[in-house]
Nucleic acid binder design. Structure first.
Lengths: 248, 248
DNA sequence: CAGTGGTCTAGACCACGAA
DNA sequence: TCGTGGTCTAGACCACTGA
């Protein structure tokens, strides 16, 4: 990697630095390779460490770098494609989805945005199922699945079950319903402390939040809020899931 | 908004600050209202301006705030839902999509990632159509649509056409083909300088990049790379586009 | 012009991981 | 224990907006 001097252009230093580093990553580094530490890099480019970090942050956001405290900065592999809807038009937990049930609790206080989608009143009991998703041995997403108790009337999980079994029981109960349709939104968010722990990231890390609404009998029978690591994931949709993408 | 003192917890100051500000936005500010300037806010919370900015950046990323140089920081309206596929299984430019053609050029150098999807060799001519998308009077997305000249053989736009007309001509030519299917990926990116100008943001602003591959006759006939403002947009998919979402 | 957010500096200390 | 990235400070100057 060169030590090109930065000219006095109106372009911000960190922006220029980012493109220089990006080119160097393409041409002079292999995936997994460790970069020099931030203090050395900053000195080499003649900028303050904070300025260098601004460039590194951008590259990490774009999935080009991976930084770990106490370890260093490494060149990230290309983003993994993650199918958001591997089995079309099925309930969560149907055969073929690769989510792992974690646990399930009954709650009467769900986030306002979710309550709006579920059309539940404050205080209405809701089953909350936690699931996580692992691809290539790495955690890529966590999910909270909200099922109003009213959607599965006359049913309650046996208290004796283990946490994952309780989650599976709720999912199993969903399969008995008719699924009329579903819709979905994707937006940018930042990882809550809990998600961050699960995803092996720092709190506030950028995530892609996928909100899926499942409709049954004209009502919203479930809402899933899935949180994907934005740095390492590329969400895939569509008929053929085998999308062969080259790196950017 | 209070001036709650920050305790000496292991939680980072900017993180705590973010939650305090977030609560204040919910309870004490109306959409469009102007916040105190950064120097005042920092003083009020007893932190350095850089630390305050770290909190504001997070809130802007989440679409809660909007900052404009020379103007100030305002409370952002809820994200607008933008239908990614308003008319299912049609070519871009079909009746009903709300993209505006901007211009079209012929290029023989497309990004490597796009060339990989198109399965074109370096140097193969490709029509590149620029489009932009406006919702509620605000620009929300820009798009580059790549159509290999080989996909519309024996056709070339008349040189006399205006830029938008040339774009429309390419799109019109696509409609004559049979559309076998399409697939799509969504990932996080940062705005290139050109996108940023178009989207009224600074370079490097977070964007959602939607890559759509259109298949015709067993080959990839077109690839669209659409760049949506991540701060103001929520992408919507699915059967019913009328998803009524409450704010987070 | 004054006031805003955007960039940049040169330090300091902390939390974490690995040896 | 040492080296890493993460947090934080107190300043400075710049670029842009609007009156």
């Amino acid at each position: 990697m060169g030590t090109t001097q930065l000219e006095t252009v109106p372009e911000p230093k960190y922006w220029h630095l980012k493109t220089v580093l990006s080119d160097a990553l393409d041409s002079e580094f292999a995936v997994g390779e460790i970069l020099p530490n931030e203090r050395d890099l900053a000195a080499r480019f003649g900028v303050a460490r904070a300025t260098l970090r601004q460039a590194l942050e951008q590259l990490e956001l774009e999935g080009r770098l991976q930084r770990r405290r106490g370890v260093g900065t490494t060149v990230a592999p290309p983003r993994v494609g993650v199918a958001v809807d591997p089995v079309r038009h099925t309930w969560p937990g149907a055969a073929g989805d690769d989510w792992q049930p974690v646990d399930a609790v009954e709650s009467d206080a769900v986030p306002a945005a979710v309550a709006g989608l579920l059309a539940t009143a404050p205080g209405d009991p809701v089953h909350v199922v936690r699931r996580s998703r692992v691809t290539h041995g790495r955690p890529v997403a966590t999910e909270l699945l909200y099922v109003p108790a009213a959607a599965v009337p006359g049913w309650a999980p046996a208290a004796s079950l283990s946490a994952p079994a309780r989650a599976r029981a709720v999912l199993h109960e969903l399969q008995t319903l008719e699924l009329d349709g579903q819709d979905r939104t994707v937006e940018l968010g930042s990882a809550r402390a809990e998600d961050a722990r699960e995803l092996d990231r720092l709190p506030g890390a950028p995530v892609l939040v996928v909100t899926t609404r499942y409709v049954s009998g004209g009502r919203t029978a479930a809402v899933a809020v899935s949180t994907y690591r934005a740095d390492t994931c590329r969400l895939t949709f569509g008929e053929s899931d085998a999308v062969a993408l080259l790196a950017g």
